[in-house]
Amino acid sequence: MYNLIGAGLIVIGGGIGLGQIGGKAMEGIARQPEAAGKIQTAMIIIGALLEGLAFGALILGK
């Protein structure tokens, strides 16, 4: 039960983080479409790092 609550919290946190990354990246691309490739790569890397964090927490919590 507590596991599930914890997992929910992690997912909420991760979701907010991913939303921030994605939103800012979109803004960046809209502002500078020619830098889209670089922004995309950086976005994926940061997304992956966040994902690792969230998964790590999920697995440790399980």
Binding site: A7, G8, I10, V11, G14, A54, F55, L58, I59, K62
Partner: peptide, 8 residues
């Protein structure tokens, strides 16, 4: 991220 949450 979501899918995994319930998988775990």
């Amino acid at each position: 991220l979501f899918a995994n949450a319930f998988a775990m």
